[in-house]
Design a protein around this nucleic acid. Structure first.
Length: 362
DNA sequence: AACCCGTGGAA
DNA sequence: TTTCCAAGGGT
């Protein structure tokens, strides 16, 4: 079946044209300064489902804070979450640190160079394994990401649904035949760079494409119909009343989210999930007093309304402000923080917005 | 296999 | 405004 896909495809010319184009047209990016496996690794984790422009400042900061693999291995959790704050998919940085620690312990600090070993590290899947192996070590290994599936679905006219997990293997199998022995790094990066800059999801720039003459979709005028990708289902909505609770010392309550699941380990203000009914301030106040098990000296809101959109979920956040005059007992995951110290903690973007709207007005 | 896990930018 | 999506992996 591999033979069928690549039959009458000019593999050698495709490789040469793509690699030549990449070498001459690649962007200057911070993770391309050298081939340090640790630097390549960090970049590949950050780039998972995340745009280059978004990653660049995070990567620069991360490398300044954790220049070497050991620096990350010995860092604490607050430090790594703060460095990742706002980048999303926070389990990535936990898994990365866990994996880096394993490399320190079991591989003398040297990133393993085989697919079998590197794939066992947390957070390193088939794509990331291939990317690190080819880019950092020059290994002849495929790295199939969304770009690669899009580019190859067009070049080879493959109509399999790229939203389905098993489809990735079709491209991987084809790539073992297609990838050049000479410069697998430039070839893999070239496929991705082409997908990012030319062979884009909508309105691909075929007239500028270095492999246009090899492209079956272009030849057949169907480049805009590929790749085939089914839609995913819509998100659920959760409404919540978020509480900014102040004491007499101008401190407010923040709490740490659970270590697993959504936004794991990040900090937030306490909140109540609400019904779809319209909220009446006095009603909310009673709920809050019951929830906090204390009397409030004042209560107002909503002082802010924010939507937090996830890939699979949406929060509709109403922010209320409360003041207490007596002592109150905190839950185990809660602490009092001053306005000044709050920036030491990592928050989801929605709470960053609340903080910036309410606390940094000056 | 299907679902969970963030965010911000573009169409 | 809504939808889609971007160098995916874990479960």
């Amino acid at each position: 079946m591999k033979e069928a896909i690549l039959k009458e495809f000019n593999t050698n010319a495709f490789q040469k044209d793509l690699v030549t184009w990449f070498i001459e047209n690649q962007r200057e990016l911070p993770w391309r300064e050298n081939k340090d496996p640790y630097r390549v690794w960090v970049s590949e984790i950050m780039l998972q489902q995340t745009r280059v422009d978004t990653v660049i400042p995070y990567y620069t900061n991360f490398m300044r804070e954790f220049p070497k693999l050991e620096d990350l291995a010995y860092a604490n959790e607050e430090q790594i979450l703060k460095a990742w704050e706002g980048l999303g998919y926070y389990s990535r940085v936990r898994n990365l640190q866990s994996a880096v620690r394993e490399v320190v312990e079991n591989y003398q600090g040297q990133v393993p160079e085989t697919r079998g070993e590197i794939s066992q590290l947390k957070g390193v899947g088939p794509y990331t394994a291939g990317a690190i192996l080819s880019i950092a070590f020059g290994k002849v290994e495929p790295a199939v990401d969304g770009n690669v599936m899009r580019v190859l679905s067009r070049a080879l006219d493959i109509e399999e649904d790229i939203a389905k997990p098993k489809t990735r293997k079709i491209f991987e199998d084809a790539l073992y035949e297609l990838i050049p022995q000479a410069d697998p790094s430039s070839f893999n990066q070239g496929l991705m760079e082409l997908g990012a800059l030319v062979c884009t999801p909508t309105s691909p720039g075929c007239l500028l494409c270095p492999v246009r003459e090899h492209c079956r979709a272009y030849e057949r005028g169907k480049q805009s119909q590929l790749p085939v990708k089914t839609k995913k289902k819509s998100q659920k909505i959760k409404k919540m009343n978020v509480l900014m609770v102040w004491n007499d010392q101008s401190e407010l309550i923040i709490e740490k989210r659970p270590e697993k699941g959504l936004l794991a380990g990040l900090w937030q203000f306490p909140y109540l999930e609400t019904s779809t009914l319209e909220n009446e301030v006095d009603l909310v106040r009673k709920e809050v007093e019951s929830f906090l098990e204390t009397e409030l000296s004042s209560f107002e809101g909503p002082i802010d309304v924010i939507d937090h959109v996830f890939s699979h979920l949406k929060w509709e956040i109403h922010v209320y402000q409360a003041k207490i005059s007596d002592q109150m007992k905190l839950r185990q995951n809660q602490i009092w923080v001053s306005e000044k110290d709050i920036e030491r903690y990592a928050f989801p973007v929605s709470f960053q917005k609340i903080i910036s709207n309410q606390l940094m007005k000056g």
